[in-house]
Amino acid sequence: MKGCNNLVDVGRRQFLRGGGAAVAGAAAAAAALGRTEAKAAPAPARVSYPSNRLANVADLKVNEPVDIAYPDADSPGVLIKLGQAVDGGAGPHRDIVAFSILCPHKGFPLAYAAADRSLNCPGHYSRFDVEKGGQQIWGQATQNLPQFALRIDGKGDIFAEGVDELIYGRLSNRL
């Protein structure tokens, strides 16, 4: 569960970075305006994620996505070995990533374009970069693509253990 705990920490850090900056800004503005109150934002609860085995590193070929599902069978995704290190990549070469393939705009299934390593939505043309943490290259979605946090054990088994955005079609990532 180490990875899972780490993810919680990452979540907290991210939250404090975004929200905290706003609190500081508000406090400064309040001071300038002669006000003193600065409310702290409540911490968001995070759901508990399962640690699910997706595949073994030996099963992966560079730039050939493998269909997976996480955190349950109704939430499809892809697991990709990129062949070069990326931010957020798992494994000894930091080159393994996994993403939800439900477009966060309207839930259409994304298709992988191996030529430029992007996930593309046939519904409304949104595109996400799997080499850049699922950043939306262009599109309609109001969030970048949910990425699955990965842990790889000593035998090369790949486990998904968390998600960094809300998955399309569910108001809780764990149903």
């Binding site: 979540g11 759901v47 960094d164 955005e165 108001l171």
Partner: peptide, 13 residues
């Protein structure tokens, strides 16, 4: 890394 909200649950109306 791309900006992520780390929101994984929302209140239900």
């Amino acid at each position: 890394m791309a900006f992520k909200r780390y929101v994984d649950r929302l209140p239900i109306p």
